[in-house]
Nucleic acid binder design. Structure first.
Lengths: 190, 190
DNA sequence: CCACTACTGAAACGGTCGTTTCAGTGGCAG
DNA sequence: CTGCCACTGAAACGACCGTTTCAGTAGTGG
């Protein structure tokens, strides 16, 4: 018989937080219970007890990562000040290039890729989910008739530039591409 | 002692080809020797004998995938007819949206993500490699002074749109984003 | 016939995996 | 003290992993 997941509790939240930090450092794809448990000062037994199964632990971690990402993106957008698409793109990009966020973004790409190749399992729907998250964030900005397409292109540019950045670490080239896009939509570099 | 890789041979090429097809269907990340061997009518013993180790087999498969991708992209570019950036982007996008290429592109994203989170191992450098491949393909087109940045943005748009497409399957929205980009650089939809 | 190369089958080795079993802790309400 | 509850440790289970060992087989050139 498979164990059921426990409802949230102090211990569960604490372990989830530590597991999230571990995942940021070591990746989600190759995560296994014994090394994780050792790193967070627990045991596989306890992780299974609190989360029900490894799949449900992965799901919890994915949810945690998404919450982190959404909060950060919203904060970046708010700090941007402007309320048009260009300002939102600029603010978001400013957050994406921050080296401190690199591990989280690599984790994001990992989960994204995995959800594409495994339609079942805990990863399912992650890619689609984040597309909607980001689109909602950029799309909810301008009410123009062509806003949908414009927001979609902004999202596309940000994600493509992010991929370049993560692969090459070449901040300049990736930023130049984003700036080129911004100048094309009529928002010259500051 | 670890076995050495065998030089190319008829049997090796044949198995590599079958293994590549298997990887397209089942993914590269979770590939393991026994199921693969069973599917291609061989045995783990033979795969290890011909490829030396699983890591080297992965490397061979990655090389095979890259060759496939480069050949297809070059063909799409040649079929595009035009010799400017917009034509190249349009031709490349036309190839990317073809559902027949979906498995290969998912495989590509998988390998890309893996190479980001594991700087060592057989995946190392894959992401950087493909960035250079694609940039070379788009960048070698126009000799303009701003060609570098323009090509980088084109690449960025194609990759971002590809990610959207793979996640949502929404050909229309992804294509609309690409077309919006093309109209911004002065090449209206045909 | 013989040596040699290329390839193959069956079985095992040591390891890690997620998960389960069994047997407890300590704290707190009644 | 008693019962209950959230949590934990140690050990084992069966499955699967990459890899190795040992023992071949078919074909080819001398």
């Amino acid at each position: 018989m498979s164990q059921h997941e426990r409802p949230p509790s102090a211990r569960r939240d604490e372990l989830l937080e530590q597991a999230y930090r571990y995942a940021l450092a070591h990746g989600l794809a190759e995560l296994s219970l014994r090394p994780l448990a050792a790193a967070v000062g627990s045991s596989p037994r306890v992780l299974l007890f609190l989360f029900g199964s490894k799949d449900q632990l992965i799901r919890a971690l994915l949810g945690r990562a998404r919450a982190d990402e959404l909060a950060a993106l919203r904060a970046a957008r708010a700090a941007g000040g402007g309320d048009d698409l260009a300002a939102a793109v600029r603010a978001t990009w400013g957050w994406l290039v921050d080296p401190a966020h690199r591990p989280m973004l690599v984790l994001w790409v990992q989960a994204y890729a995995r959800s594409l190749s495994e339609p079942d399992g805990p990863w399912a729907g992650f890619a689609r989910q984040t597309v909607e998250d980001w689109l909602g964030l950029l799309g909810g900005i301008d009410g123009g008739t062509a806003g949908g397409t414009d927001a979609a292109l902004g999202l596309t540019v940000l994600r493509g530039a992010l991929l370049d950045l993560l692969a090459t670490g070449d901040v300049e080239r990736a930023t130049a591409a984003v700036e080129r896009y911004l100048s094309l939509i009529g928002s010259p570099a500051r």
